[in-house]
């Protein structure tokens, strides 16, 4: 585990065209082999942060870096180093799960996967063989989510951005997903995840941050929170009992 962060937000601010200040000078870093969980109420700015990392939107100020590459300056270069799972994975409905996997793998420049590799990864994310050749059109949200996770894993990028990846997953699938994340951490991926699932965050994250109204109000190593009631802490932050996070030394 090196100390220099692979995913980095530097005084990131975003003001939307309608004037909403979605992000207010947010700074943080995610090192390789680290799982960084962002908690926060709806509209706190989590998705906005991830979208800036993917250059789906430009920051108003500051910058997001992936492996040192500034995302809005060299978006293609940056995107080659990051995989992404959205809160609601959407795939090509006319294609089967296999075809979707194949297309996105090739889009990531991965041409060497075999049919068996695709089957393996689909099984790994919890999709049984009988749906591998079914059109994605008929998939449930959870099944699509699993496909999305499979696509992200196939990309085999050093960084992974997960926007509420477990939304729509059943408890078993959620548990399996956590095991998957652990193995990815083992492989040294830098993982940034936004989530509403406090318990799971506490279970697997290395660092837990809380966002509120576009600002990072708390950032703590999970180990230090182990003995605390995270839910209570979260509620306190949401109620505004704690001020903004003091700048890190």
């Amino acid at each position: 585990m090196t100390d220099s962060p692979y995913l980095e937000a530097v005084a990131l601010s975003k003001r939307y065209e309608d004037g909403v200040l979605a992000l207010d000078r947010v700074s943080f870093g995610v090192r390789p082999g680290q799982i960084y969980a962002m908690l926060g109420a709806n509209g706190a700015g989590k998705t906005t942060t991830i979208n800036i990392f993917l250059n789906l939107i430009d920051p108003s100020e500051g910058e997001a870096r992936i492996g040192g590459i500034v995302t809005h300056r060299e978006p293609l270069e940056a995107k080659a180093h990051v995989a992404y799972v959205s809160e609601n994975v959407m795939l090509y409905g006319n294609f089967t799960a296999m075809q979707n996997l194949e297309f996105f793998a090739r889009l990531s420049g991965k041409h060497h996967y075999s049919r068996d590799d695709y089957h393996d990864i689909l099984r790994r994310v919890g999709l049984s063989d009988d749906v591998h050749y079914k059109k994605v059109r008929g998939f449930s949200k959870g099944m699509r989510q699993k496909c999305g996770i499979a696509i992200a894993i196939l990309k085999d990028a050093p960084a992974i951005l997960l926007d509420e990846p477990t939304s729509g997953l059943d408890p078993k699938a959620g548990w399996e997903f956590c095991r998957l994340l652990e193995s990815l951490r083992q492989e040294g991926k830098a993982i940034l995840m936004s989530t509403h699932d406090i318990f799971r965050a506490k279970e697997i994250a290395d660092t837990i941050a809380i966002m509120k109204e576009g600002r990072l109000v708390m950032e703590q190593p999970a180990g230090e929170l182990a003995h605390l009631d995270l839910e209570k802490l979260y509620m306190e932050y949401m109620a505004g009992h704690n001020g903004p996070m003091p700048a890190e030394a």
């Binding site: 995107k79 959205s86 609601n88």
Partner: peptide
Amino acid sequence: EDGTLKLVFSHPVS
């Protein structure tokens, strides 16, 4: 509308 554009452009596609 289908949401696929977002996933495509999370890949290095010009």
